[in-house]
Design a protein around this nucleic acid. Structure first.
Lengths: 217, 217
DNA sequence: GTCTATAGCAGGATAGAC
DNA sequence: GTCTATCCTGCTATAGAC
């Protein structure tokens, strides 16, 4: 809206820096002074361009976060149609890949999930947008995809819990990086990330895969 | 330390209210004014009893959070020895039960996990305590317990990833309550909680359990 | 559209009476 | 040990010059 010229670069820089800082430290912990300093412009600019800090935060979700979800979703659909299978294995594989490797740079992905986790932990107005525009539709879609391939008697709710569990792992392995690094002692590099994708696929399809072995004490 | 008399009730009340508020809203969002008002005492009392707000936060972890971890762990060990099995099924069952039903009241559990999640999302000095005193030892213990019952060739790291995935679900189903309620439309009552325990056990042991079915598109 | 300067307020921490 | 009153800092938001 309005004229899009050279004049909007400040606005764009503000959105970029704001997103990085909000993702990193959370809404309350970030000050407008910090954001404007990072963007190399003046304190008043946030008020001029967005009205106030709250609106800037929402605009980060609309102009940065939401388009990124669409890119992830497209990547998921593409990688699924390029395989010629709608087996659970194929679906989980495409899903884990889209979310953990997919179209996002590592930095983008980290931001993306930090924003999600912070909204889940302490919902604000952006939470509504997250649930109605993203989670609910994607979970519904996955339920439809999976239901035909699941054991026959499975209910909608069981299906939904399965989907949420996969999502839980994807989310966890993205947001608990610090803890995971501290516990495993491994760097969060691309080799480890590839390993995580494999693990999520394997665990989602067969869990511990030891149900037939374990013995009595 | 020091004299334990009627005089420490204020201190205890401060710790209780501080924990509830920190868990709910996070460290930054809570003000000492809020805490002292909830505890029904004066603003200066936090400074008097704990020195400053930071120390109060750490003391919440030491005097409330850490003992609660011990109770959960004891409950886990007890329920495991009362079954006469160290099969993965028994271990996962005892684990899911200890964390989702176990010795904690629903309110306590919610607080407990909110504190964990907030530390994982934005580590402070309490994060060290969490990793070294709790996560690392429990994960190690679980790795030892499980390794004998797992498929023979499994490496330490695979084992650790499996354990972290179970932990991821337990954590997720505790902290994402708002999102889960919004998506499933179900109240987070004890019936639903029991269902979640069953689900976590089932999913941990066999994943989607559909690896043999799904067909080509 | 961008800046400086400042109003107006809320935060943590402290001094000192009781 | 608890209180009131207050200091000082740092925040958002705004007014007004350029």
């Amino acid at each position: 809206m309005g004229k899009k010229g050279k004049l909007d670069v400040t606005k764009e820089r503000l959105l970029n820096e704001a997103e990085a800082l909000f993702a990193q430290k959370g809404y309350d912990a970030v000050t407008v002074r910090e954001i404007t300093a990072a963007a190399g412009c003046n304190i008043a600019s946030i008020n001029y361009h967005f009205g106030n800090k709250q609106n800037l935060y929402m605009e980060v979700f609309r102009s940065r976060w939401q388009p990124r979800v669409r890119r992830i979703h497209e990547s998921f659909i593409n990688s699924l149609t390029s395989q010629n299978s709608s087996s659970p294995a194929a679906i989980v594989q495409a899903l884990a890949y889209a979310f953990l490797e997919g179209p996002l740079s590592d930095e983008e992905r980290q931001r993306h999930f930090q924003l999600i986790v912070k909204e889940i932990a302490k919902p604000t107005t952006a939470f509504d947008l997250m649930v109605t525009e993203v989670m609910r539709p994607i979970f519904k879609e996955l339920a439809v995809m999976l239901s035909s391939a699941m054991p026959d008697g499975i209910g909608q709710e069981d299906l939904m819990l399965n989907i949420m569990s996969i999502f839980a792992m994807v989310l966890h392995f993205n947001f608990a990086r610090a803890a995971i690094t501290r516990i495993t002692g491994r760097e969060y590099d691309s080799a480890f990330k590839a390993r995580l994708v494999d693990h999520i696929i394997k665990f989602s399809l067969e869990g511990l895969g030891a149900s037939n072995k374990g013995g009595g004490l």
